[in-house]
Structures are given as structure tokens and as C-alpha cells.
């Protein structure tokens, strides 16, 4: 039984190493894989919104840093194209 567990652990370890090497090759370097696993994957979510869902509201800050408005204030008259992103 113990021998079987050792084999299983060895195979899993080899698979993980193989996956890391393959991802490093695809991403360009091990550093990129680490960055993706450490910083990107925890923040990437498909979310629960679907076409037809009520659009959620949220309060946003203006570029002046002091004014505020709600997404909902911009909806109703015409379709609203929401573009999410950042500088980096």
C-alpha cells in the first residue's frame, strides 16, 4: 500500500512539473507562470451575469477624484457600452 502511494505521489509530482514546464514554455518564462497563478487567476471570474440579467449598479468616482455617480444614472435613454480596464 505504501509503495503504491509513493508511486502515485511520484506520478502526480512529475505531472505537475511537466505542466509547469509546458506553461512556462507557452507563457515565455517561469516568472510569467508564477505571475499568472499568483496574481491573475485569483482575480479572474466568469461572474454570474448573463444576457438578460438585470445590470448591477455601482457607484463610481469621477476623474476629478471627488465627484461620484452611479452606473444606473447613465442607463435608460440609449444602450450603454461599459468598457472595463486599467492602464497596465
Amino acid at each position: 500500500m505504501r509503495r503504491l502511494l509513493k508511486w502515485a505521489a511520484g506520478v502526480i509530482g512529475l505531472l505537475l512539473v511537466g505542466a509547469f514546464v509546458a506553461l512556462s514554455f507557452l507563457a515565455g518564462s517561469p516568472k510569467e507562470v508564477y505571475g499568472m497563478l499568483r496574481y491573475a487567476l485569483p482575480h479572474m471570474h466568469r461572474g454570474t451575469l448573463l444576457v438578460g440579467s438585470d445590470a448591477p449598479d455601482a457607484r463610481l468616482v469621477g476623474l476629478d477624484g471627488t465627484s461620484h455617480f452611479h452606473i444606473r444614472e447613465r442607463t435608460g435613454a440609449r444602450p450603454l457600452v461599459l468598457v472595463f480596464g486599467s492602464f497596465t
Binding site: 491573475a40 466568469r46 461572474g47 451575469l49 445590470a55 448591477p56 444602450p79 450603454l80 461599459l82 486599467s86
Partner: peptide, 12 residues
């Protein structure tokens, strides 16, 4: 609310 990171587009 929109699961938007890092970039995403919606139309309401």
C-alpha cells in the same frame, strides 16, 4: 459586480 478584471465589455 461585473466580474470585469482585467478587462471586459458589457452592453446594457
Amino acid at each position: 459586480a461585473y466580474a470585469a478584471w482585467p478587462e471586459r465589455i458589457y452592453i446594457i
